[in-house]
């Protein structure tokens, strides 16, 4: 049986940060593929470079060397503006601290990415309501983040991530700030998005229980994968 075609192709990627006069290497010569429809968990200790790798794949940081191709697009060759446009149409983000806009309601938060799409107000409304119904928050759409629990806020963040129907969902410690029950809800939701909608998910986590929900797990240590 033929394996699914890769949606992410990472080739010889290295990344380092400058701290004062010191150059700190974070990732060294990473090469691997992520298949379409895969649910990948990247684990590793703090400082291992897993969030950096996620940022590079999602196009919110730049490689020093190497290339990253997502859905056939070499994102390392895009300008800042092109990269922003690419992110807007292709990547859904789920953060540890939800990162919702506190002055916007759940509905308005989910609507945020759609403002860049050129959809009409009615079309946007339809998309937002659909995304919120998928995370079971239709009845809380007029609530502000401060009026929602952590789990609910993360579900709003997931709705915001999927509302543009992205090629890729990236999640950085999505359960890191949640209690066990809320974390379970969020992981179930991500599992459904992967299985029922075929979304490719890359999740960075410290939590072995969360990582177990993924199809594939990779351990990153000192900027390199040491086991697959």
């Amino acid at each position: 049986m033929q394996s699914p075609s890769p949606i992410v192709e990472i080739r010889s990627v290295s990344k380092s940060y400058r701290r004062g006069s010191h150059v700190v290497p974070v990732l060294s010569d990473i090469t691997f593929d992520i298949a379409r429809g895969e649910f990948l968990a990247i684990m590793g200790p703090s400082g291992s470079g897993k969030s950096t790798l996620l940022n590079l794949i999602a196009g919110i940081d730049r490689v020093d060397t190497g290339s990253i191709v997502v859905g056939g697009e070499d994102i390392t060759s895009l300008s800042e503006t092109e990269l922003a446009r690419w992110r807007a149409g292709n990547v859904g983000f789920i953060f540890q601290f939800y990162n919702l806009m506190p002055v916007l309601t759940a509905f308005e938060n989910v609507d945020l990415p759609l403002h860049l799409t050129g959809l009409s107000r009615a079309q946007r409304r339809e998309h937002v309501e659909m995304a919120l119904s998928m995370v079971n928050l239709t009845d809380r759409m007029d609530h502000y983040p401060a009026q929602l629990s952590g789990g609910e806020q993360q579900r709003v963040a997931i709705a915001r991530a999927i509302v543009i129907d992205p090629v890729l969902l990236v999640a950085d410690e999505p359960t890191g700030d949640l209690d066990r029950r809320s974390a379970e809800d969020v992981l179930n939701l991500m599992g459904r998005l992967n299985e029922e909608m075929g979304k490719t998910i890359i999740m960075v986590t410290h939590d072995p229980h969360a990582a177990e929900r993924a199809h594939t797990m990779r351990h990153l240590e000192k900027g390199d994968f040491n086991s697959v």
Binding site: A58, I60, T81, A84, R85, R87, A88, G89, F93, F95, N99, M101, L112, P113, L116, R160
Partner: peptide
């Protein structure tokens, strides 16, 4: 700054 970073992440220029 964090919120502006989130907006940029979502594709806002």
């Amino acid at each position: 700054v964090g919120e502006y970073a989130v907006l940029k992440t979502l594709g806002y220029s």
